[in-house]
Simulated assay, not measured.
Amino acid sequence: MYILSLIILNLYIFSGCSYYQSSDVEVDLFKPKKAYELSDKYLGLIRNDNIEEANSLCTENLLKNNNEITTGTSKIISFEPEALIEASSKSVFITFNVIRNSSSEPKCDLDNFAIKVIKDGEDYKIDEIKAMNKMQVFVKNNSLRIIGEDGGKSDLIVSLSNMPKDVYLRRNELMLHKEKVEAEAFGPVALGYKGKKVAISTTGGNKTFLSIAYIEESKATQGGANESNPNKEGSTEVNLEDALDKPIAKKVIPLDLLRNIKIDNLVFTKEEGFLIVEYLNSNLVRRIKVYNGENGELVDLDFDKEFPADTYNISLINFDKEDFKISVGGKLGAKDINAEKLGEYDVSIEGKEIKKST
C-alpha cells in the first residue's frame, strides 16, 4: 500500500511540473487584429504621404520588387475596411475600399486593396499588396460620368445643365431667399465607399455649389458595350449620345452655396454618414465644414467661434464613423494667435464636441 501511494504521489508531482512548464510557453499564434492594425496604419501613412515610414512596415521582398513607390497624381484620401481573409496559419489578406482623387482634374476612383500580412518571427509585416479599380468618376463634355471595373461604356451621372438652378442658403435659418447657382464647371468630386453616393462640387464666378448625388446601379458597374477613351474629346456622334443619355442619379441633394472659396478635398466618413469638406477661404486659410450625408444639413461644430477664420488653419488628420481628428495651426503673419489653441483636437460629429487631444 505504501509503494502504491508513493507511485501515485510521484505521478502527481511530475504531472504538476509538466503543467506549469507548458503554461510558461507562449503559444505562437497569429493575431488577425494586429494584422488589421498594421494594414490600417500603412494606408494611413500613405494617405499622409509618409512613404518612408510606410515602407518600414513592409518586407524587403515586397520593396525590392517595386521600382516606383509613390502614389503618383492619384492621391489616397480615405479608406474603409471590407473583409479579412485567412491565407494560412501565419498570414491573412485584409481588403479595403480605397478612395483616390486626382490632383489635376475632377476625377475620383474607388479601388479595392488586398493587403497580405505575414508574421515573421515576432514581427508582423506587409508582404503583398494587390489593387484593382472598381469604379471611376470623371468629367467628359460638361458631364459627370462613371465607368466600372470592366471598362466598356460609361454612364451619365449628371450634367452641368441638369444641376439645380437655384438653392436655399444653409446659413439662413429662415429659408426664404433662394440664390442662383452658377454651374460653369465641375470641381473636385468624391465617391462613397459603396459606389452609391457621389459628392459633387461645381463652380461659376465666385460661387461654389456643393451637392451629393445618389446613383442607382449603372450599366458601367455591370459591364457594357465598348467605348472609346472616356477622356478624349467627343465627336458629333458622342455628343449626341451624351444628349440622349438618361442620368443615373436618382436624386441630387443640395448642400451649400459658398462664395470666394476653393475646394481642396471632399471625403465621406466611414459608413458615409457625413461629408467632410476641406477648403481655402478668401484669406487663403484652410478650413473645414461637415454636412449630413443623408439630408445635406450643415453640422454646426462652432469651428468659427473656437478658431476664427482669419487666424487659424484647420486640417483634417483622420476620421472614423462619427469622429475625426484635426490639426489647428496659426495663419502665417496673423496677429492675436493664442498658442494654447494650437495642436490636435478630437471632434465628435454627433456630440458636436471639440476636445484637445491628450
Rank of each mutant, 00 (worst) to 15 (best):
P254L: 05
I314L: 15
I85A: 01
I51M: 14
F319T: 04
I7D: 00
G234E: 00
A199R: 03
D304C: 05
L210F: 15
N162K: 13
S348Y: 04
A213Q: 04
D123V: 02
D155N: 14
P188M: 08
V27Q: 12
S89N: 14
D111T: 04
L332M: 12
N283H: 10
L257M: 07
D242N: 15
K31M: 11
M175P: 03
G330Y: 01
L332H: 14
S15F: 11
K270Y: 05
V27W: 02
A87P: 01
F186K: 12
N260T: 08
D242G: 05
N283S: 09
R259A: 06
M1C: 10
F209A: 09
K355W: 02
A220W: 13
Y124R: 08
K153S: 15
F113G: 08
K196W: 05
P254V: 03
L110Y: 10
I129F: 08
G351N: 07
Q222F: 14
G187V: 08
D49W: 12
Y193M: 03
K270L: 11
S235H: 01
D49Q: 13
E184T: 05
E82K: 15
Y214Q: 13
G204R: 07
I253S: 01
E217R: 13
N50T: 05
N338H: 02
K270C: 01
F274G: 06
S56D: 13
K119E: 11
S218Y: 04
E306A: 08
T73I: 12
D242I: 11
D40S: 15
N48G: 04
V98A: 04
I126V: 06
S327P: 02
N313W: 04
G151E: 10
I7E: 00
G234W: 06
G273C: 01
S15T: 15
N226P: 06
I77N: 15
E353T: 15
N292P: 06
T208A: 02
D320V: 02
N48R: 14
V290C: 09
L4D: 09
C58A: 13
A213Y: 10
E227P: 01
T59W: 05
F324T: 05
I276L: 15
K352P: 00
F138M: 07
V98C: 03
Y42R: 06
L29R: 12
K125H: 08
I129D: 00
F30L: 02
A243H: 03
A243Y: 10
E278L: 04
R171V: 13
E184D: 07
Y12Q: 07
V25P: 01
E60Q: 12
N295S: 06
Y42M: 08
L244S: 10
S282R: 10
K125T: 02
Y345C: 06
S315V: 08
G273V: 04
A339E: 15
D166K: 14
G205A: 08
T208H: 04
L275V: 02
L210N: 10
V252H: 02
G296F: 09
F93C: 02
G205V: 08
P32T: 07
